[in-house]
Amino acid sequence: MTGRARTKQRPPLLLVVPAFVGLLFFAVPLIGLLARTPWGDLPELLSSSVVVDAFRLSLLASIGATALSAVFGVPLAWVLARVEFPGRSIIRGLVLLPLVLPPVVGGAALLFALGRRGAIGEPLNELTGLVLPFSTWGVVVAATFVSMPFLIITVEGALSSLDGRHEGAAATLGATRWTVVRRITLPMIAPSLAAGLALTWARAFGEFGATITFAGNLQGRTQTLPLAVFVALESDRDTAIAISLVMVVVSLTVLVLLRNRWWRTT
């Protein structure tokens, strides 16, 4: 971004005060969590089989969802940004719907469509024997559903604002359309792509509502960290707090590292 205005003067109080209040929205819950953390018991709490299983599943599901989003979401973003077709704004709205839809609604919709008696789930089950609900694949599908829009919205934005001259020049020099995408377009949007992938991963890592509604809750198979927190809150609050802390640390680390690495330059 050019012409970034970063003032050296004292910032106006009229902005600093509300900015500070805005910051409190994020800081206060975190302080509440830290204040309740049983620091001494932390190693023991975090090495329980429930937490280890949930952590493994969360990593698997979030990375799987990010991979699926990259494979299917980037082409979709490209189509939305570059191809003119009737009803494009409706398709775009549909794709971005999971950003605003309550995840539990998404989970219920997934269950009705892909469940054992669902419109697609039933034939799928008969053809392949695959049952998505209550399986780890179901967790990946739910996480992909809620997280892929983050990648699409980021990549589509980058593609739309891309200067088309480089692609045009490459095409003039005889590059095939696929080569242009691979050698020119994708490298040029790499920072946005990386940022989008990071957001997608972070959203998938924290996914709760669609997962519990669509995939259920079973340790080692479908119980990710957020589900483990939810269940533990009702029976074992120290474990719940310990897991919450892990989620905060992991997510914050990833977001801070990636922001420093990629977003500064965009």
């Binding site: 269950l111 009705f112 469940g115 054992r116 008696r117 609900p133 209550f134 259920g216 809750n217 479908t222």
Partner: peptide, 20 residues
């Protein structure tokens, strides 16, 4: 041999209703 431990009775019932 349990496949899911639901957070409340209504969500359990919903999954029985749906045939899942």
């Amino acid at each position: 041999m349990v496949d899911t431990y639901e957070p409340n009775v209504r969500s359990l019932l919903t999954k029985v209703e749906s045939g899942d």
